[in-house]
Every structure is written in structure tokens, then in C-alpha cells.
Nucleic acid binder design. Structure first.
Lengths: 195, 195
DNA sequence: TGTCAACTTGACACGATGTCAAGTTATCCA
DNA sequence: TGGATAACTTGACATCGTGTCAAGTTGACA
């Protein structure tokens, strides 16, 4: 250990991240091993399965890209609208960073419980962020009448899905900026009173 | 042939449809064969691959559920808004019918070109419907200023995605009615002038 | 009677994941 | 100095699902 500047484990995570983000391939365990410069079996000495490796990679990205700091800003917003905007910027702006891993995680066979759970956890965390923004809006009395907090959360969470980002940014060629601006506009139209 | 009331091919398609719609499983070729009551190999006498079987199943559902008739109504709408609503009803109401197959098609390995193409075709067809509704809105002068027809189409197409339906109806427990109502409301808020 | 289509059984190749066993190499430490 | 240990290597193998191949059966129809 100690020696090679950075540990093999970290190198594996970085390489996996790169391969997934570069997009084109299916990224098999053997591809990752080759890119790291170790044997396929050595991969299994560090990560028990492909699913666990993918999960560890998302955690690695979270720490490198400091997802906590990004979210902290939205938590400290004063008004409901500010919180909504900050959260959209935080999560919407984070999607491109984890998009490669997210695709791989969702492409795992349904039978893979680890992978499914990891993705569900992610989505649940995002949902909590949505719910907090909705609560802040409600507290300000800006939530559209006839909309429960749960419904509003469902909606915001749906609008902010990775798949919607894929459709607009990746498939339709929208810039990240116009994506974020449009989601804000849509969220306001969907959730807030005009007042 | 002729004899067994309905042809084996049709029975295969019906069974595949049922299995996919019932949701729980991975639905392997052997599962389908067993459910039809023939050998796994006989399946390959009728359909060259799993991908082709899935594609044929969507076409089968289209014909049984008469997708053309559903879409015809939206094409004959007089105003842009009417067309928008009719299209949302048509496609949004069709999603539950093909949801099982859609999941299976998207779950196919990326390497499978047939499956990917079939799904892309579907999405392209939906996009055309969206574009037509947007054109009708623009003709009525009801398209929001600062929004190109392409952007409006991108947005409507995104809102009407199968994944958004999954999130609201399947994951969040919305009724089909409230789903359709909400998509209408959102589409109007996103695309139309207040006038 | 013979032919043909629809099917059956059984074996096998392939690609990817994951496992197992046995060997190598470098480092650290007593 | 010599021996344990961690981090790796090579190579073989099991498993699962798809798809292929070959040879046999069955029933209808001409």
C-alpha cells in the first residue's frame, strides 16, 4: 500500500469513473481492469462485484465533487423560492457529473439488488431535497392551492429526474443553463401561486 | 396451421404481452415458452431473437388496442389546445398499455441494435405527435413568446415520457386521471401564453 | 404412401460475471 | 537473514441466458 502515490482502490474508482463518463461502451469488468493495468481478478480483491464497484464509484464522485457543499447552499436559503432555485441548481447541476454512473447503475440486470438499492437510495435522497423545498414554499404560503405537499413533491421530483435531463440536454441538445432555467420556470408554474 | 383456433404465433404474442405486463419477472425466453406450452426452441422458429419478439409484441398491442384510432382523434381536433389535450389523452392513456413491453425493450443490453431502434422509433413517433400539437398551438398564436417550436416540442416530449408516467403513476401512486390532468396543466403552463 | 410443416429433444458455443487454487513479488519486521 | 504477509498474477472453471445446430416425431393433406 502506501507507496504508489495513490492507492490501487482509488485508481480503480477514477478509471471506472472515466470509462463510464466517456460513454460509448458497455464497460465490462475486464475493460476496467485493462485500463487500470491490473488483472480482472485483482478487481475482485477490491470490490466484491460490479454492482459494488459502481456504487463505490458514485460515492467517490460525491466526495470528489463535494456534493455536500453543493447541497448546503440550498439548505441555507431564506425564502421558499430561493430554496427551490438553489436545489434545482444543486441537483440539476450535479446530474451531468454522475450521469455515466447513473446509466450503468440503471442498466444493471433487475435481479441485482445492490444496484437497484443504490439507485433507489439516490432517488430517495433527491426526493427529500424536493420535499424540503416544497415545505419551504408552503411555509411562505406560495404553494399552489389544491396541491398537497406530497403531490408537489412528486411533481418536483419527477421534473428533476435524470431521464428528463437526458432528454433535454443529451437528446435534444439543450445547454445546461437553459435546462436549469427551464426546470425552474416549469417548477414555479407547476407548484407556485402566481401571487 | 389453420387448426388450433388461433395461431401459435398469436398465442406467443399474447402470452409475452401478459407476462411482461404482469411485471414481476425478468421474462426469459424459456419463461415464455413454458407459458405458451411449447419448447424454447419452437419460439425461435417464429421469432429470430428476443428483441424481434418484443418488437412484434408492441406491434401486436398496437393493433389490438387500435393505436391508430386513438391518435386519429387528436389529429382531427380543431384548435391547438384541443389538439394538445387530445394528444395527451391519446398517448398518455396509451402508456399503461405498453408499459410492460417498454420496460423490457429498454432493459435490453445496449449492444442490441434491434431493440434500441424499436424504442427510438416509438419515441420518434411520439415526438412527431408533440410537434404537430405545437404547430397547431403556434398557428393559433398561443405559443409562449421566446419559445421556438423545437423547444416547445422538446418540452412536451419530455413531459410525456414513459419515465415520467412511471414516476407519477407507478412510483408515486397517482391515478391515471390525475396524471393526465397534471400533464395537461403542466404542458399549458410550459408552452402557452396566458391569454 | 409419402411429403411437408410444426414441433420436440438434446447438445453446444458464446459472452459476461463471479469463484477457486496455486504461484510470484516486494516489503516489513523480528 | 529469513519468514510472514499483502497485493498481485495466471489459469481453470461454474453459472446463466441467448442463440444455433442436428436429428427425430407427429399429424394432416394429396
Amino acid at each position: 500500500m502506501s507507496s504508489d502515490q495513490i492507492s490501487t482502490k482509488t485508481r480503480i474508482l477514477d478509471v471506472t469513473w472515466n470509462l463510464l463518463e466517456s460513454g460509448d461502451k458497455s464497460v465490462r469488468m475486464s475493460d476496467i481492469a485493462k485500463a487500470v493495468g491490473i488483472s480482472r481478478q485483482a478487481l475482485y480483491l477490491h470490490f466484491p462485484s460490479r454492482a459494488e464497484l459502481l456504487v463505490a464509484t458514485t460515492r467517490h464522485i460525491d466526495s470528489v465533487k463535494d456534493v455536500d457543499a453543493r447541497l448546503a447552499r440550498s439548505r441555507s436559503a431564506q425564502t421558499g423560492v430561493a430554496r427551490l432555485h438553489a436545489f434545482i441548481d444543486a441537483w440539476g447541476g450535479y446530474i451531468p457529473e454522475i450521469h455515466g454512473v447513473s446509466v450503468a447503475l440503471r442498466a444493471m440486470p433487475d435481479s441485482d439488488q445492490d444496484a437497484a438499492d443504490a439507485w433507489t437510495d439516490r432517488m430517495t435522497a433527491v426526493r427529500h431535497g424536493c420535499a424540503a423545498a416544497v415545505v419551504a414554499l408552503a411555509r411562505d404560503g406560495r404553494l399552489k392551492e389544491g396541491l398537497t405537499e406530497t403531490q408537489a413533491t412528486d411533481l418536483l421530483w419527477t421534473l428533476l429526474s435524470v431521464e428528463n435531463w437526458e432528454r433535454l440536454v443529451r437528446d435534444s441538445g439543450w445547454s445546461q443553463n437553459s435546462y436549469q432555467a427551464m426546470i425552474k420556470q416549469l417548477s414555479e408554474a407547476a407548484l407556485m401561486t402566481d401571487g
